[in-house]
Amino acid sequence: MTIAKGSFAFRCVAAMLAGALAGSAVARPDAPRAVSSLVIDADDGETLYASDADIVRAPASLTKMMTLFLAFDAIEAGTLRMSDRITMSRHAASQQPSKLGLLPGRSLSLRAAIEAVAVESANDVAVALAERLGGSERAFAEAMTARARSLGMRHTKFSNATGLTSRGNRTTAHDIALLSLAMLREHPRGYDYFATRSIHWANRTIANHNHLLGRVPGVDGIKTGYTVDAGYNLAASAKRHGKRLIAVVLGERSAAARDLRVSHLLEVGFAGG
């Protein structure tokens, strides 16, 4: 049966799926009960399903979507070039994992830096990139917040380039969907980095943290995130038969529950016609 998008039937099916998934999650005692969920049509921006999508919460590594967005802005403006090297400072090298583990003074190509942030969510590289673009991580975080406002992300603020726990980091599922949509529209070539299944670094093969790549038909990005205060977050986009959807889940209780919720919400969205 085809369910018209935005219809009462569509909302009921999506709500039942979300409820079933919430019941199957492994509870964390510090996690808020509500999980933020949102599905939008990427072609016209229409919201197909939303549940607690405007609750303000921690973004975790979804923050790095904006870190890379500003990098892609700089590449387009010509102030950053693919031939540039990104040098690791002491501050960048001191970041908590996930990280590549470069020593201070070492460098990597811009392409490798972008891949490390998009695929491994490398905190050390994200900070090094922020320092290269903004002079300091603090100044870059201010630029991230300003760019968020320009995209209509009214409830988002950044205090670092990584999403590591900080009182200054906040967002909503709705705002993350706006950022995902802007990435697709303004930086389609940059978006392609999020589809990278794995990278090779120092004799290691590092798999993308987005487990839906290659497992859910049509999924080709975009980013996962986790911190204790944020829970398990995922913004994902999929395209089937010429139709593209964006699904965002924030604050899930496990990676498995997060992936399952996003997968089911995408299925419901595509079934909506």
Rank of each mutant, 00 (worst) to 15 (best):
T156P: 06
A126D: 02
A130D: 05
S121R: 10
N123S: 09
A112Y: 02
G105S: 04
K157L: 08
S107Q: 10
F158C: 04
R106A: 10
A146G: 08
L102I: 11
T145Y: 06
S109N: 03
R154L: 15
R149V: 11
A118S: 14
R111D: 14
G134M: 00
S109W: 02
A126E: 02
A122W: 03
A118I: 07
G101R: 02
R111P: 02
V119Q: 04
T145C: 07
V125G: 03
V127P: 03
V119A: 11
G135S: 10
V125T: 15
S150P: 03
G101C: 05
L102H: 05
S107T: 13
N123E: 05
L103F: 09
S107R: 07
L129E: 02
R111A: 13
L103G: 00
A146P: 01
G135T: 09
M144H: 04
A148Y: 00
T145D: 05
R138D: 11
N160T: 09
L103W: 06
R147A: 14
G134Y: 00
L129K: 04
L100T: 11
V117M: 08
H155M: 13
L133A: 03
F140P: 06
L102F: 12
R106C: 04
A113D: 07
A116K: 07
I114E: 07
S109A: 08
S159V: 07
T145S: 14
A148L: 06
T162S: 15
R132F: 00
S159H: 07
